[in-house]
């Protein structure tokens, strides 16, 4: 039986207690502050927001690496709390930003890619090498690098190794945390092409976390915009890029610099500072930076409003 939602999170909170000093009481930091999200099978969800908005924390929760303070994560309609860590690992796999830090420098390529097989205790160890080679072929790595070490490879090749490791057990969901931002432009396009191909070939679902909105626009089918631990807008990519609703999404998208010399740089009017998440602004947390701030924005927190194709959280769109 297949369900439409391969990944679902319900009202997730992740709170850290930050100590401000030896004799001061600890203060809570809501890294993720009540987020709900459904990821349908085969979809590519882009997760965007500034650093500190909680997108990386959310990725860790989706990978089962972090137990949320409150809320529920479901993979394939099964609550993560009931799943074994090996079960989660078979279904959800990560790809990280920095291919220099994501591969153990002491292990050979073959050993890195086969690690998931060994951990899962996959049947027929004699076929492992063949499976590794098949996966290497799939991600465009030549067989001769099987015994090489990461230090002997270029950034693009390393990222392919990381992708092969994530895919060898054929997971359903791949969480890509800035998969191309540490790579050169010419290599970035190769990795993006590979991700697009692999998705079609293996029927993968991606959650792509990126600050590069051009990349998100290129690959994602739906985009979620996060701000200070909240999801302020979720919409289909086309809707978001053509008719974004939340003022923050507008500012964020206006900051994308396309290579067009006839356009200058427009001011996003976001002000210089990202608010301190330990001491978030009252009401709508975006109000100090908002260009369309209204009188009641600093006192009343907005609630999610259904827009048909997604959700927006802003007083502007309240009936």
């Amino acid at each position: 039986m297949t369900t439409p939602n391969v990944l679902e999170i319900r009202d997730i909170y992740q709170t850290y207690q930050i100590s401000k000093g030896l004799f001061q009481p600890k203060k809570p930091l809501h890294a993720v502050n009540g987020v709900s999200l459904k990821v349908a099978r085969g979809e590519v969800l882009g997760l965007v927001g500034e650093s500190g908005c909680g997108k990386s924390t959310l990725a860790k929760i989706l990978l089962g690496l972090l137990k949320p303070t409150q809320g529920e994560v479901l993979i394939d309609d099964k609550p993560v709390a009931d799943l074994d860590r090996l079960d989660i690992a078979r279904m959800v796999q990560p790809i990280f930003q920095d291919p220099y830090s994501s591969l153990n420098p002491r292990k050979s390529v073959g050993s890195i890619i086969s690690l998931p097989l060994r951990v899962q205790n996959a049947p027929n160890p004699e076929t492992w090498q063949k499976r590794v080679e098949e996966t290497m072929d799939l991600v465009g790595l030549p067989k001769r690098v099987y015994n090489n070490y990461p230090s002997q490879m270029s950034g693009g090749q390393r990222q392919r190794v990381a992708i092969a490791r994530a895919l060898i057990n054929r997971p359903q969901v791949v969480i890509c945390d800035e998969p191309t931002s540490a790579l050169d432009v010419s290599v970035q396009s190769q990795i993006l092409n590979l991700l697009v191909d692999l998705r079609q070939e293996l029927g993968l679902t991606y959650v792509i976390i990126s600050h590069n909105l051009a990349v998100v626009e290129h690959i994602a089918t739906r985009v979620a915009v996060m701000y200070l631990g909240r999801m302020v807008e979720v919409a289909d990519t086309d809707d978001l890029f053509e008719a974004r609703q939340h003022p923050y999404s507008q500012a964020l998208l206006n900051s994308v610099l396309t290579p067009d010399p006839s356009l200058g740089i427009s001011d996003s009017h976001l002000g210089a500072t990202y608010p301190n998440p330990i001491d978030p602004p009252s009401g709508c947390t975006f109000h100090p930076r908002c260009a369309k701030k209204m009188a009641h924005c600093d006192s009343e927190a907005p609630t999610p409003i259904d827009t048909g194709s997604g959700v927006v959280e802003c007083h502007l769109y309240k009936d």
Partner: peptide, 13 residues
């Protein structure tokens, strides 16, 4: 803090 350790955790090691 290296990503390969996080990756090993995500693999269920």
């Amino acid at each position: 803090t290296m990503d390969y350790v996080t990756s090993a955790r995500a693999l269920g090691c």
